[in-house]
Design a protein around this nucleic acid. Structure first.
Lengths: 151, 151
DNA sequence: TGACATTAGGTGCATATACACGTATCTGAT
DNA sequence: ATCAGATACGTGTATATGCACCTAATGTCA
């Protein structure tokens, strides 16, 4: 494998270090996740749960499959992550009227209220991260992440 | 909270949907993680383990704290993730000569060999993701992710 | 209408992630 | 020399993540 590239191993390793999108994206993801987790801790949710509640606020009565697609997440992961939110009464999961296979997830009153509280915390962190970048960098980042998530 | 912004809730929600870096970064991260996981599955590792082996290939005999910092990861997470790699004999963990608190992690022969195998798979996926972006977008993405990970 | 494919979703397992807390070791001031 | 604080790391617990596999409900076509 190595030989095929006609390059010495140290140079290859240096190249991977420079260009590896896996490392960069995951590293940034962990960092961003922790910052939002810190911000949402007083409200009692984590960054995923905030995003989850936001998607439900934007579009009510989503199915598990739709939510999984919204968040670019495995369906089974979505199912499991919904549990704590349901236990806390922030969302409600009901069987669809027309199709008994389908589960409809919607925000409860308590979920909306908690989301409203969390929004200010979100803004602080989101603005904080954005402030570290130039407007052009921020725009490019958003575009690139969108392309990656859809590819 | 909501009132403070002097905007109706639907508009706020739409704004969060457009601008939320948490959602975008995590979404892209899951997508990228899965693609690399798929690519590395024949070799028997996941994307984190590849990155881990790569950092050790670049700098031998790293401590747990150093590795955690390299990958922007919690120290305790690093400790636990090292276990499977050690069990499989891909890395070796030894107590430091000078300081008995410190553990030195290094690649084994088997680890190097597996890494060499994985490199071609890495290249295919990394090039594939990069190909979905323009060179300028790719450069901006790398820069922005670097800034975020260090901020 | 009955057989079969398709679709929506859940479970079991393994690893990933991180916080709170604990242990062992080292360092420096006295 | 000793002890208080700092440092390096591990453990317990809880949630996060996704694959392999499973069940149940629906759709389709003969």
């Amino acid at each position: 494998m190595i030989q095929k590239t006609s390059r010495p191993l140290p140079a290859l390793i240096a190249e991977v270090g420079r260009t590896c999108l896996c490392r960069r994206v995951q590293h940034a993801s962990r960092h961003v996740g922790r910052r939002f987790d810190d911000a949402f801790r007083p409200v009692g949710i984590n960054n995923w749960q905030f995003t989850m509640l936001m998607t439900l606020a934007a579009q009510a009565s989503r199915t598990v499959n739709q939510i999984a697609a919204d968040l670019g997440m495995d369906r089974t992961t979505t199912t499991k992550n919904l549990r704590p939110l349901e236990r806390r009464g922030l969302i409600q999961i009901r069987v669809d009227d027309k199709d008994a296979r389908v589960r409809r997830v919607s925000l409860t009153e308590a979920g909306e209220q908690l989301l409203a509280e969390a929004l200010e915390n979100w803004r602080v962190v989101n603005d904080g991260i954005a402030a570290a970048l130039t407007p052009a960098q921020l725009e490019a980042l958003r575009t690139a992440l969108e392309v990656i998530a859809r590819s």
